[in-house]
Amino acid sequence: MTRVTTTGAPHGTTSAALGALAAEGATGALSGERGIVYLSAGRVVHVESPFTPDLGALLIRSGTVAPDGWWDAVDRGGRQHRVGHRLVDSGRLAAGALELCHLGALFDAAYFAVAPGTRAHRFRPGAAHWLGAVRSVPVDVVVRESARRRALLDRIWPDPDIDAVPLTRVTDAGPADLPVRRSRTLTQVDGVRTASEIASALACRTYHTLVELRRLAADGLVTAAPSAPTTPAPEPRGVVWDDPDTALLRRLRDALEAL
């Protein structure tokens, strides 16, 4: 049985530690092998992972928030953990748009942070994320959604290495007539970038990028890179926000409001 106290160190997997913290109604940050989960009163309020671009990077790269607007909100609201509120109060981002973007970033990072077998390292009681309170999600919803996404990706191509390592194109693969989003993803595969870096370059949510990369791997067009060249490919110009799953996030938000 995994037990985590607000004064002790966690043991066991990240998902088990989160379950124990939720039962205690804990507030703070749980660090693990693949990310940090922030809790408030036992509910998840934010997740960060080095395998996904952060919310600020996506908002800026997509053109949703201007860089100066984002950094102004960070400078003015970061110490008070109110960056999200600053974005809304200043009129730079609508409250509903912030919630949807936040949920997308949260579930993207949670896919890695609560992956099966991922070990918990440390719980910091009282730690809060600089973004501030936007939307809280029950721990079991986060774990369940992460498992659903993993099962879908494994049905497409059962190789989790695609999610985290630098990727390269298969040089002897024949030409393929690909959908626009998949073709755009393929153009960013250069032997250096990982899925997270490709998602960031395209201003796209990581999960959608993983779907396309696994499909490309299943088609024999992409594989793990044996070595990385020194110069990455140039980033695309004029990229627009890729948001094919807004309806799902709205349904998730509505379901959370009904809890």
Rank of each mutant, 00 (worst) to 15 (best):
M1W: 07
T2F: 02
R3D: 08
T6Y: 09
A9P: 11
T13H: 02
T13A: 11
G19V: 02
G19P: 09
A20Y: 07
A20N: 09
A22T: 03
A23I: 00
A26V: 02
T27A: 06
A29R: 13
A29G: 10
G32R: 00
L39A: 05
L39Q: 09
S40L: 09
S40R: 12
G42S: 04
R43Y: 01
E48I: 01
E48T: 06
T52V: 15
T52Q: 09
P53A: 02
D54T: 05
L58D: 05
R61F: 00
R61K: 14
S62K: 02
V65H: 06
D68V: 04
W71A: 09
D72R: 15
V74K: 15
G78H: 06
R82H: 08
R82I: 09
V83F: 03
G84E: 06
R86N: 10
L87Q: 01
S90L: 09
S90A: 13
R92A: 08
L93Q: 12
L93A: 11
A94Q: 13
G96R: 11
E99N: 07
L100Q: 03
H102A: 13
H102Y: 15
L103N: 01
A105F: 11
F107H: 12
D108R: 04
A109F: 07
Y111P: 05
V114P: 01
V114D: 00
A115F: 01
A115R: 04
A120I: 04
A120C: 12
A120W: 03
R124L: 05
P125L: 14
G126V: 04
A127F: 04
H129N: 01
W130V: 12
L131K: 05
L131M: 14
V134E: 11
V134I: 12
S136P: 05
V137N: 14
V141Y: 12
V141A: 15
V142L: 03
R144C: 08
E145Q: 10
A147N: 07
R149S: 12
D154L: 13
R155T: 09
P160D: 02
D163L: 13
V165C: 04
L167R: 06
R169T: 07
D172N: 15
A173H: 09
G174A: 15
P175T: 08
A176L: 01
A176G: 03
R182F: 02
L186W: 06
L186P: 09
Q188P: 07
Q188W: 00
G191M: 01
G191N: 08
R193Q: 00
T194P: 10
T194Y: 14
S196N: 07
E197Y: 03
A199G: 02
S200Y: 09
S200E: 13
S200L: 10
A201C: 04
R205G: 00
T206P: 09
V211G: 11
E212S: 13
L213Y: 10
R215M: 15
R215W: 14
L216P: 14
A217M: 13
A217L: 12
D219Q: 10
P226D: 11
A228F: 03
A228C: 07
T231F: 01
T231G: 01
P232L: 14
P232F: 10
P232T: 08
P234S: 08
P234G: 05
P236T: 15
R237K: 11
V240L: 06
W241K: 08
D242S: 10
P244Y: 08
L248R: 15
R250Q: 11
L252W: 08
A258E: 10
